[in-house]
Structures are given as structure tokens and as C-alpha cells.
Design a protein around this nucleic acid. Structure first.
Lengths: 214, 214
DNA sequence: CCACATTCCCGTACACCGTACGGCATGCGC
DNA sequence: GCGCATGCCGTACGGTGTACGGGAATGTGG
């Protein structure tokens, strides 16, 4: 598996294809380039000038399609939620088919975070501005989607009732809080303090946080 | 309680006292100013020029006492660990005296994070450079200290054996991972997705993660 | 008391950042 | 052919961290 997590890479033409794209196409190309820069070179490398340079375009041109750097960040975050949601859905699906085990889904989530630390950090550590309704919706939607996946997982493993029941949502919430804590610590390189491998710690954590295991 | 978390504020003289301080005293003053700027104005407000301005000193002077901005960040982080450690120790102490309840200690930890979001974020999201031995030691020491507090708490509440036993450390680890997940989500304003108040969510989380409750 | 060495301080400058402004070139309706 | 609208982006401004080197002050040997 050369590409561990399913993140689309469409790096063939890049600057070549700029000309024959319409407005939204160009915007998406900009976001895609910024997205890859973030994953590969870190957040502080995502620069208007660098993106423009990679696209063979003047820096100010980007402002025709995107409303500044913050807007670009929001779009990257939205894209990240789509991908992590897709990843986890797939992993949970295989969970369901095999045995009623939480580990594959959880492992997929944490793996995504570890393999895309800059993206994950941007997604979950960027504070929400309460006034920014659009951004709030992106975040809220992304989170709700993740919780949905966990809730469905809970329901399908027979550990809870219907996905929308209150108790199920609560369990899903704490399950995901725990995974998020583990993910952020792993990203920041703080896992060495805890004894044992990542898998061991994760297993021990899920034992406590998920109702029962099979 | 005007000052909710015990963070020292020594803002009386500031620039006045610069002159009659020795080398290490000046360095500590610089760190203290930067520390307060971080807490009050956010990370991107912590600027060499701004710190120097607040101290009535040229920007380049700071480099005589501190090895650049990253070094300053490290020193702030170290200070943050001292404070959070002290806070949680105190809270856990009162836990022990009253009843065997996890909540006060946990609440104190999360409250610290929520009231000092910029500081907490800097402390726990700054990635460790494996080559930087000094910084690694700061982080490692800070974490170990926190785990120690939790382990002692576990031992004193009679929920586990001696603090240093493997099982105790594992429980302390997962307890603290969960709290950290909760704290980071609360900081980033992502709690609205989960239904219920912070206290409810925290209680539900600790119920799962802490062995038993009294 | 003077001349020199050492230490501290910091003004200037450079490379980078996000982006406001305004001019240019192109295409389209008439 | 002309006038106008639109997309593109060069230039410039105010910010950042910090390398460099000069100046001031302080200590030190004669």
C-alpha cells in the first residue's frame, strides 16, 4: 500500500491545467494544492505566494477565487472532514463484517491523525469564531458526521439501541473524545511518556470507553 | 475569586525593574511578560518586538537573554507545566480530604485548559523535535509529573496499588488521555456537538475511564 | 589617568508574510 | 470601432524573526 490513507492526489498537470478550468474548478485546484502543501510541508509552509508560485500565477490572483488565507483554511478543513469521514466509514464497515471489534475503526481514525498531523491539527485545533456562521456549520457538520459513524457502529455491534438514542450518542461522544485525546497526544510526540505501544494504549483505552468488547 | 486559576501576576513595575536585575532575572522577566501576553492576547501576539516594547528595550536585546522565539516558547511551556502541576496537586489534595471523588481534580485540570486556551494549546500541541534533547526533557518531565499526580490520586483513593505499579500507570494514562481529549475539544469550541453540559460530559467520561467512583 | 579589551545594547537591514490598491490587458455588447 | 466590464497581478505597506555590526559602557593593566 503505497498511499496508506485514501487521500486523492491528482498531481499530474498542476499549472498546466489552470488555463482551461472555470471559476469553481480553479478554486478547487487552489484548495487542492494548499491541501497537499499542508500535508507535506506543514502549516507555516501554506503561503499565498507559495501556492501561487506552484500554480504559475500571481499571488493576488488567488484572491479572485478565495477570500484570503483564513477562507482557504476553512476549505481545507472541510475537505479534511470529508476524507476522515469516508475513511472511518469504510473501516467501520469492515469491522461490522468481520467480528464486533472496535479496533479497526479506532485504529483507522488514529492512523489518519498520525499520518496527517498538520491536517488533523488544523481541523481540530483551529478555534471556531462564534460569529462565523459558515465555518461553524462546517465544523458542526464534520463532527456530527463522525459521531454518526460511531453511533451507527454502536448500534450495529448490538451494544446499544438505535443510533439516535441519547444513551448511544453519549457513548459515542466519550468514545470519540478518548480517541481524539490519544490522537493529539500521539501527534505531538507525547506518547513516550505512557508505557506501552500505541496499540496497547489504545486497546486499554477502548476497553474502558466502549461498553463491551467481543 | 478574581483570579480563578493560580497564575502569578507580578505586573507592578515591569520596565522599571529591568535595570536592577541580573542576567537570569532579566531572562525570567522576559519569559513572564511573554507568558502573560500569550495568556491574554493569544499566541500570534507574542512577538519579539512587542515584548521588547513592553519592557522598554530594543528587540534585539532579547536575544542576549533568550535564544530566539522558539526558545521563549519552550520556557513558557516549562512554566505552564509547573503551574498546572501545582494546580492539580492542590485540587487532588482537597479531593483526598473530602470524599473519594475524581471530579474536583478533573474539573481543575479542564478548567485550567479552558481558562488558558492559548497556553494549553502551546503546551500540548507544540510538536517535539526528537533532536532537541532539552525540550524533550521539559515535556517528558512535565508529563511525568502530571501522571504522578494521577497515580498518587489513584493510590490514595484506594482504587489501585502503589503509584508506581504498572496497572496504576496504565489507568492514570487513560484517565489523563480522556481529560486531555475533553480539554482540547472544549478549547476549540467543539463541545456543542456533544449534547449536555461540560460537567455532564466529563462525569460520563470519568465514569468509564476511572475504575470506580464513590 | 590613560589606553585597551570586553561586555552589553540595539539600529539597521534582509527576507519573508498577508493583502489593499490600482493599472493593464483582454473580451464582449453595441 | 468603441466603451465598458472583467480577470489578472505588479507594486507597496505594515508586519514578522533575526543576522550583522557599530557604539556605549564598563572593567583592567600599565
Amino acid at each position: 500500500m503505497p498511499q496508506p490513507t485514501a487521500i486523492p492526489t491528482n498531481d499530474k498537470p498542476l499549472a498546466r491545467q489552470w488555463k482551461d478550468l472555470d471559476r469553481t474548478g480553479r478554486r478547487e485546484l487552489i484548495v487542492a494544492v494548499a491541501f497537499n502543501m499542508l500535508r507535506e510541508d506543514g502549516e507555516e509552509a501554506v503561503t499565498m505566494r507559495r501556492i501561487a508560485g506552484a500554480l504559475g500565477v500571481g499571488a493576488m490572483t488567488l484572491y479572485t477565487y478565495v477570500d484570503g488565507l483564513e477562507d482557504l483554511h476553512r476549505r481545507i478543513i472541510a475537505r479534511g472532514f470529508d476524507i476522515i469521514h469516508e475513511n472511518c466509514s469504510a473501516a467501520c464497515e469492515t469491522d461490522r463484517r468481520h467480528e464486533h471489534d472496535w479496533m479497526p475503526g479506532a485504529r483507522s481514525y488514529v492512523r489518519f491523525a498520525i499520518e496527517n498531523p498538520n491536517l488533523y491539527h488544523l481541523m481540530f485545533a483551529t478555534p471556531v469564531d462564534p460569529d462565523d456562521e459558515q465555518f461553524d456549520q462546517i465544523i458542526h457538520g464534520g463532527f456530527a458526521g463522525l459521531l454518526e459513524v460511531v453511533s451507527e457502529q454502536l448500534a450495529h455491534t448490538g451494544l446499544s439501541g438505535k443510533p439516535l438514542e441519547v444513551e448511544t450518542r453519549k457513548v459515542a461522544g466519550r468514545y470519540w473524545i478518548a480517541l481524539h485525546g490519544l490522537a493529539t497526544l500521539a501527534i505531538a510526540g507525547r506518547m513516550q511518556v505512557l508505557h506501552g505501544t500505541l496499540d496497547e494504549v489504545m486497546e486499554h483505552l477502548l476497553e474502558a470507553v466502549a461498553p463491551t468488547r467481543g
